[in-house]
């Protein structure tokens, strides 16, 4: 490691590699924090940004992408790169959720989650047990899902068969329910990653799949479970999105796939796997939502908003790469 041969600084006579790596991590966290601070300064100078109503708007817009991005975080940490089938899955599950409203909200929600688990879980099992390339597989899967959804719905828009869904649009304490759900789920995912045997296996498999296999770790099962959980989280996003739109068609997911990937990357989770956290993804989702909001309030065009999203992702990815190189080399 080059840190060992680097000339010692006066403030740190003994620099152990472990320390300096966490220091490098701190630098990245600091940069992330700085970006948020810069955004806040920018925000405060932006008319109408620092209002309660606007904060709610940011959190609400971050929540739907955020919940899906939490699911994607599991996939990415486990070394399966990304799923490109998030939007179609969300659209399909959203349609199922609204058509099942006649059974009541809770059964409809359970059905939605079950379908979400099934759709994404099957892909995860193929990636985990048959070592399929996740990118190729999910491209194929997204066409399959869209095709089936279009066929079944006849290409039309699904309207709710009952009114129970509207409870998802509730705003307890003046904040959208989806925001509470996002924060709650982020904490649960974070705890699962940090404190369970599953989480630890996922990090190990993500870092070195071959070594994990040789060590006898359940590579296939762990990968499949990560995708199952991701499917459940996609389904939650789907229910909220469908409830918000009060109707669903095959385009319900919109640009969610890339928004979720952007949130994961903006949070500093490397695409290669083995690192990352749910809270980082949460921060990434809020960062992107806040940036879009500022630009919106400042009157920038949609084009500029999208461009800035890309720039944020690029900057963070480069920073993460530099940190990784700096700690290895």
């Amino acid at each position: 490691m080059n840190v060992m041969s680097a000339p010692p600084r006066s403030d740190a006579p003994i620099r152990r590699p472990g320390r300096s790596r966490s220091r490098a991590e701190l630098v990245i966290d600091a940069v992330l924090l700085l970006a948020v601070l810069a955004a806040i300064v920018l925000a405060l100078t932006t008319h109408r940004f620092a209002t309660v109503a606007n904060a709610k708007a940011i959190l609400t817009s971050a929540s739907l992408v955020g919940i899906a991005a939490l699911g994607l975080t599991l996939i990415t940490i486990g070394g399966s790169a990304v799923s490109l089938a998030i939007s179609p899955s969300v659209a399909a599950v959203g349609m199922i959720f609204l058509s099942a409203q006649s059974f009541g909200l809770v059964p409809a929600l359970a059905l939605a989650v079950l379908c979400g688990i099934l759709i994404t879980g099957v892909q995860g099992a193929i990636v985990g047990y048959a070592a399929a390339n996740p990118v190729v597989l999910t491209i194929a899967a997204s066409f399959a899902i869209t095709g089936i959804a279009t066929g079944v719905s006849g290409g039309s828009t699904v309207s709710p068969t009952g009114g129970g869904y509207d409870r998802l649009n509730a705003t307890p304490g003046g904040v959208a329910l989806s925001v509470y759900v996002l924060i709650g789920l982020a904490l649960i995912v974070q705890w699962t990653l940090r404190r369970t045997g599953f989480g630890r296996s996922l990090y190990l498999i993500g870092e070195n799949r071959r070594a994990a296999r040789a060590a006898g770790l359940p590579v296939g099962r762990t990968t499949a479970v990560a995708w199952l959980a991701a499917g459940a989280l996609f389904a939650v996003t789907a229910a909220f999105t469908a409830a918000f739109n009060t109707s669903a068609n095959v385009n319900l997911g919109g640009t969610l796939t890339f928004d979720a990937i952007a949130a994961v990357l903006a949070g500093g989770t490397p695409i290669a796997g083995g690192r990352g956290s749910a809270l980082r993804t949460l921060a990434g989702a809020v960062l992107i939502a806040a940036a879009s909001d500022i630009l919106l309030l400042r009157g920038s065009s949609t084009g500029v908003q999208i461009l800035v999203k890309g720039v944020i992702v690029l900057v963070v990815v480069v920073l993460v790469h530099l940190r990784t190189e700096g700690s290895r080399a």
């Binding site: 472990g18 630890r200 990090y203 190990l204 870092e207 070195n208 071959r210 070594a211 994990a212 040789a214 060590a215 770790l217 083995g274 690192r275 700690s327 290895r328």
Partner: peptide, 16 residues
């Protein structure tokens, strides 16, 4: 490439 998880702590590797 087929043994250790190099970027993970020693503890994680020993107990993997």
């Amino acid at each position: 490439s087929e043994g250790l998880f190099l970027d993970k702590p020693i503890s994680w590797n020993l107990l993997a």
